[in-house]
Simulated assay, not measured.
Amino acid sequence: MFTSKIARKPLKAATALTATAALALTMSGCSGDSPSSEAGSGSTVSTVKVGMVALGQLPVDQAVAKDYFSQEGLPNVKIEYQTYPSGAAAIPAMLAGDIDFVYTNNVSAGLAISEGLDLKLAVGADSVSAGNQQVFVPTGSAVKSVKDLQGKTVSVNGLQGLGTLGVNVGLEAEGVDPASVKFTEVAFPEAVSVMQRGDTAATYIVQPFAQSAIAAGTAVKLFDFNDYEELKNLPIGNFYTTGSYASEHPDVVKSFAAAVNLALADLKADKKRVAELTVTAAKVSPETADTIAASIQYIPNQKPSETQRVFDLMTKYKFIENSININDVAVAE
């Protein structure tokens, strides 16, 4: 019987990042125990609260199942989940002390850090790989190459997200000025149908939506992010904590990272296990889970310098004004 347990909470409504920045900064500077600390126990905690976006929970699920948290120094600790619709919603919750760690995409994290918010990189997770970040056009489209996107509209799931960043890289690599392309925000489930009716010329989508479009014959791949050196194996999402939590509980952060890295190694080597966890976490069919699992690339013991690549691209394409130095963000080992 495992000593680490998972408690799940209902979906929390999205919170605007900028609207909570002042409150979060104030609270992150407060002294005293965090909500998950045991009274009088110093850095020892009884509960670790983790915010989840999309399927970020899979490494934590695996770490719990294998009892890695106990093995790495967190015995009898309950792992408690809080699910959020986006990193923009999860990050303020962590800064306000509602959760201790958050899995979020690195673009959302970079935007928060650029605003002066107190985020620290605890441990890496997954990265771009062939088949998991792609741009599609309608079957029979006149758009045959990336160059044909000049002057066209491309949909992404978030205007300041990995999709826009990756499309910009692809456009520039093929000699197209990114400023000549219009981006519009469309959620993944609707992206292909919106494109089919002519509202967009191309769409950025991920699995299983890409495979569904291929199977239905409604869309064809234009390019894969992994086709371009600047995007190859680019970190997608990491687990972050706050600087204050890392200072108060360095042992917890170290143990959390070690346990997650063990889980990442398991999942990198076993796609069947990824699919099993996906069926439960996402409540999808085994067939859909297989498609998703095949597209995920986990990177155990990922070097912080890899995430620097994301922040550098954000500076290059003016997502942020000032560059971010990963040495100021990564938790010291």
Rank of each mutant, 00 (worst) to 15 (best):
T3L: 11
I6S: 01
R8E: 15
P10V: 02
A14H: 13
A14N: 12
A14W: 11
T15K: 11
A16N: 15
M27W: 14
M27R: 14
S34M: 13
S34R: 11
S34P: 14
S36D: 14
S36F: 01
S36V: 08
S43D: 15
S46T: 13
A54P: 08
A65R: 09
K66Y: 14
D67A: 07
Q71V: 12
Q71G: 13
L74S: 10
V77S: 03
K78L: 05
Y81D: 06
P85L: 02
P85W: 02
A89P: 07
A90P: 06
P92A: 02
P92D: 08
A93N: 13
A96P: 05
A96I: 10
T104F: 07
N105W: 11
N106D: 15
L111Q: 12
I113R: 00
S127C: 12
N132Q: 04
Q133S: 14
Q133P: 11
P138N: 06
T139M: 02
A142M: 05
K147N: 08
K147M: 03
D148N: 10
Q150Y: 07
Q150F: 03
T153G: 01
S155E: 01
S155F: 00
S155R: 00
N157P: 15
N157Y: 14
G158M: 12
G161Q: 06
T164N: 04
L165N: 09
N168A: 09
N168P: 10
G170L: 00
V176W: 09
P178T: 09
S180M: 03
S180R: 04
S180G: 06
E185K: 03
E190G: 00
M195F: 02
A201H: 02
A201S: 13
A201M: 02
Q211F: 05
Q211E: 15
A216E: 12
G217H: 04
A219M: 01
V220H: 06
K221D: 05
N226D: 15
Y228V: 07
E229F: 09
K232T: 10
N233T: 15
I236G: 10
F239H: 07
T242K: 09
P250H: 07
V252G: 08
S255A: 15
A257Q: 06
A259Y: 08
D270V: 02
E276V: 04
T278R: 05
V279C: 00
K283D: 15
T288D: 14
S295G: 10
I296F: 07
R309C: 03
V310C: 04
F311A: 00
T315I: 02
I326P: 03
D328H: 12
A330F: 10
V331E: 10
A332K: 15
E333T: 12
